[in-house]
Nucleic acid binder design. Structure first.
Lengths: 150, 150
DNA sequence: CAGATTTATATCGCACACGATTTAATAGCG
DNA sequence: CGCTATTAAATCGTGTGCGATATAAATCTG
């Protein structure tokens, strides 16, 4: 029979059969591949993601960055302070609503985008996948993420 | 033309088009879904992965666990000490080679496997995917990880 | 418009995660 | 055999991440 069996409990409990572990370890692998490239920019991998979000849309609140990156203020605030200390961004309370903090790129932060432009290609190369394939896999994982967060 | 275009640099620099970000955020999403289930077992998500590795094969060295989990001793040592303090594992220097530390499940640690047996099904449900589909996606990501670490 | 409620960030404590280094033990070699 | 090189864990410093809580500002309600 070519019917897809329900996996046995033993098979289910093997680490290498865990989708979550594949993602967990692939995430670490990405961090490692990014490291040498991001060292040039003096950025950590999460800091790079914040910069990408700001390059895409400047002048965002902490909350809006958090929504896009799926991060809490308790994670972002210290990160943003480091990026500010490095001179890449500024953090200013919104005049109209003092609860909010507006995060903006500095000149240096904007200029960094050019230096970072080579990064995506380097990463794409390391995946050993075609652009179309990367896009498809990315979409599948984004859908999975949405299911998990439902 | 139905030819697959090479993505423009602008498209490449959008966060939502990053495969790495999909994986990064899906990993966080998994952590969140696991949290309430693992709270019952008094385990964090990384601790759970260590326990899964030990349930699959007991009596491993720190190094062998590190290879399977893609983690360094600097990460594992403190984690294992916590699991030991909780009474789930024991850490003993190997008599034949005192450099190595053998990690073994305690009775309590073995017994925990039964309590944890419901977890994978709960997670699988949260993915909203069929077992076969989960397996395929898992394999694709494992292949990606291998490429990245090459 | 005063007091209660909600919202936006920040702070704190804890647990990863890693690179660089240290420590201790084994293996290799003349 | 003794000395060096290698190997396995542990330690240290830094940077995420998050839950719980605190703080302060805006909003809502009577």
């Amino acid at each position: 029979m070519a019917k897809a069996d329900t996996p046995s409990p033993e098979e289910l409990m093997k680490l290498d059969n865990f989708l979550c572990f594949a993602i967990y370890s692939a995430n670490h692998a990405f961090t490692r591949v990014y490291k040498p490239l991001l060292d040039e920019l003096d950025l950590t991998y999460p800091q790079y993601l914040v910069m990408v979000a700001l390059w895409e849309k400047d002048d965002q609140t902490v909350g809006s960055l958090g929504e896009k990156l799926f991060l809490e203020s308790s994670t972002l605030t210290p990160m943003l302070k480091r990026l500010e200390a490095m001179g890449y961004i500024s953090r200013v309370r919104d005049r109209a609503d003092e609860r909010q903090v507006r995060v903006r790129l500095t000149e240096t932060g904007q200029a960094l985008k050019a230096k970072a432009s080579a990064v995506p290609l380097g990463i794409a190369g390391a995946t050993g996948m075609e652009p179309a394939e990367i896009g498809r896999l990315k979409q599948e994982i984004a859908t999975l993420r949405a299911s998990l967060l439902r």
